[in-house]
Computed example of a mutant assay.
Amino acid sequence: MRRLAVATALLLAAPALAETDFRALSEGERLLLGAELRAVLRAHPEIVERALTPSLYEDDIASDLALIARHADRLFAGHDVALFVEDSCADCDRAAKELQDLARARGLSVNIVSPDAAPDIAEDLQIDTLPFYVLPEVMLRGAMPAHVLGRFLDKL
Score class of each variant (00 low, 15 high):
39 A>Y: 06
84 F>H: 03
113 V>E: 01
151 R>D: 15
15 P>E: 08
127 I>T: 01
149 L>D: 10
89 C>Y: 01
118 A>M: 09
16 A>D: 11
148 V>A: 09
122 A>V: 08
120 D>F: 05
86 E>I: 07
66 A>F: 06
50 R>E: 12
46 E>H: 11
48 V>K: 05
99 L>A: 05
29 E>L: 08
12 L>P: 10
19 E>P: 02
74 R>Q: 09
147 H>S: 12
56 L>N: 15
141 R>P: 09
108 L>H: 09
61 I>F: 10
60 D>H: 11
103 A>H: 06
145 P>N: 08
101 D>H: 11
137 E>N: 03
150 G>D: 12
117 A>F: 07
96 A>R: 05
37 L>Q: 14
56 L>Y: 14
98 E>F: 00
132 F>R: 02
42 R>L: 09
152 F>H: 08
34 G>D: 12
134 V>N: 00
90 A>M: 07
30 R>S: 13
101 D>P: 04
7 A>V: 08
118 A>T: 10
146 A>E: 12
68 I>E: 04
88 S>D: 11
69 A>K: 06
60 D>P: 00
14 A>H: 13
120 D>I: 00
142 G>K: 05
12 L>S: 13
41 L>A: 06
152 F>A: 12
23 R>A: 05
44 H>I: 09
146 A>L: 12
63 S>A: 13
36 E>G: 03
148 V>K: 14
151 R>M: 13
70 R>D: 05
2 R>V: 14
153 L>S: 02
88 S>V: 07
73 D>M: 04
149 L>E: 07
37 L>K: 07
8 T>A: 15
6 V>M: 06
25 L>I: 03
48 V>I: 11
35 A>K: 05
24 A>N: 04
1 M>A: 14
5 A>D: 11
122 A>Y: 03
55 S>H: 15
110 V>D: 04
122 A>F: 02
59 D>P: 03
22 F>Y: 04
152 F>Y: 09
118 A>I: 09
82 A>Q: 02
51 A>V: 13
150 G>P: 07
50 R>D: 09
36 E>H: 08
122 A>I: 04
16 A>C: 05
70 R>F: 05
113 V>C: 02
43 A>K: 05
16 A>H: 10
97 K>N: 08
107 G>F: 02
144 M>L: 10
1 M>K: 10
64 D>F: 00
27 E>P: 13
66 A>E: 07
91 D>F: 09
15 P>C: 08
124 D>R: 03
88 S>K: 02
71 H>S: 08
95 A>M: 01
141 R>V: 00
72 A>G: 15
142 G>W: 01
31 L>C: 11
113 V>S: 01
54 P>W: 02
94 R>L: 07
46 E>S: 12
77 A>R: 10
